[in-house]
Design a protein around this nucleic acid. Structure first.
Lengths: 216, 216
DNA sequence: TTCGACATCACCGTTTTCAGTTAGTCTAAA
DNA sequence: TTTAGACTAACTGAAAACGGTGATGTCGAA
């Protein structure tokens, strides 16, 4: 019998090992690889293939969304199941747009990951109950989160990430300017650009974004 | 043979299920309970006992540190292994102070949790390699984190948590004042008190604290 | 009953953030 | 070669945050 080849990407090794232990019991599933950050994931798929990729969003260096974006250029892409700590509507929409076939939160039970893998491997989609409810609420207008401007993820330039990281170190604009040897005005411009890109009101939004995307 | 009774507390069910799958293979370990937040954990230990508690710090409602604090008043307390995403020195010191016997980060491999459980159950302590290194660096003065004032966790009043949560919603001081029907001056006082208690410079530090402690 | 913790409010002055706009340079892609 | 994006920088003015201090009333514990 042909087993379903699965790759797991998550920066928490203990979670990978745990899920692996659950999947190993299944006769129709085989773990062919795992990676601890986005860069490793992309690298692995350069040389290898899998039927299903279980992918975390919040990873250092290269996050899950960037991994999916890198796949868009490739011919063969795996069926992707997002396994995330966060479940905001804007994140769900974002990953669906770039081709995710399933979405689970880390609050879900271990058996659901098994079901999800089988589903997406047979061409179906899979969403955990809580995610389905979110989607229905959103579509019926019952949900609170209806801000289409704000995005869970935006591609930031290297310089912007650098500035954001320093903001996360509790540095003021002046201190950042001194550290980077640039003008205070420039740092302020970066700051404003960041807020606009991420659709947030103030530095609080920046910090939340940075933590969710592992920039801090 | 008497098995080691283990309780696991983590708000990510999938992690619990994963670790359970790993532990179930072990002949000398038995999972006697699990809980998805701090309140559940405390409640469970009112009625039951375990030899070892594997405890996450970052949980909604009542976090891991508050759980440990609630145990301090009890006569019989389990051997506690902290399993955390974060590994700052100030967190490590804090949990050791209130009686943790082991500390692992979620980056560690599944087999280490097994070793840790056996260790603490036999009266020994257990720290993952990366944590041991942190501790040595700190003691030898090589570490950067030597700020004794700042604390990973501080007991906040209900009102303070409320204000902090609203700060996390990107509300300005004025907006918070309107929402809580109190003066702007009062909100500013709360804000200042929060910063002082948590030993942070500005709102950035507040948001980071709030996210790590699941207040946002 | 006294004490301390908490929540409330006020006044002050300084510093920083935030919003809007404009504009020069440089590089890499079309 | 034009064009677009990135990084840099400046200016202005309003709004908000930050730091320090002092004061009031309430409530529960010692």
């Amino acid at each position: 019998m042909k087993k379903i080849k699965v790759h797991i990407a998550d920066d928490h090794k203990i979670l990978i090992d745990g899920i692996s232990a659950v999947l190993k019991i299944q006769e129709d599933i085989e773990i062919v690889g795992c990676s601890l950050d986005g860069a490793q994931t992309i690298e692995w798929f350069e040389e290898n293939t899998a039927d299903v990729l279980v992918l975390d969003i919040s990873m250092p260096n290269v996050n899950g969304i960037e991994v999916m974006q890198s796949f868009q250029k490739k011919r063969v892409i795996p069926n992707i199941i997002i396994l995330s700590s966060y479940d905001e509507m804007k994140l769900i929409r974002e990953v669906l747009k770039i081709g995710a076939k399933g979405f689970l939160t880390k609050k879900c039970a271990g058996e659901h990951i098994v079901e999800a893998i089988r589903s997406v491997n047979s061409g179906k989609q899979y969403f955990s109950e809580s995610i389905q409810k979110k989607m229905v609420d959103f579509l019926s207008g019952a949900g609170e989160e209806n801000n289409p401007e704000s995005t869970f993820f935006s591609p930031l330039t290297e310089r912007e990430k650098e500035v954001l990281k320093l903001i996360g170190n509790e540095l003021s604009t002046k201190e950042i300017a001194e550290k980077l040897f640039i003008s205070v005005n420039t740092v302020e411009t970066h700051r404003k650009k960041l807020m606009k890109k991420l659709g947030v009101k103030n530095v609080v939004g920046l910090v939340i974004y940075a933590m969710k995307n592992r920039i801090i």
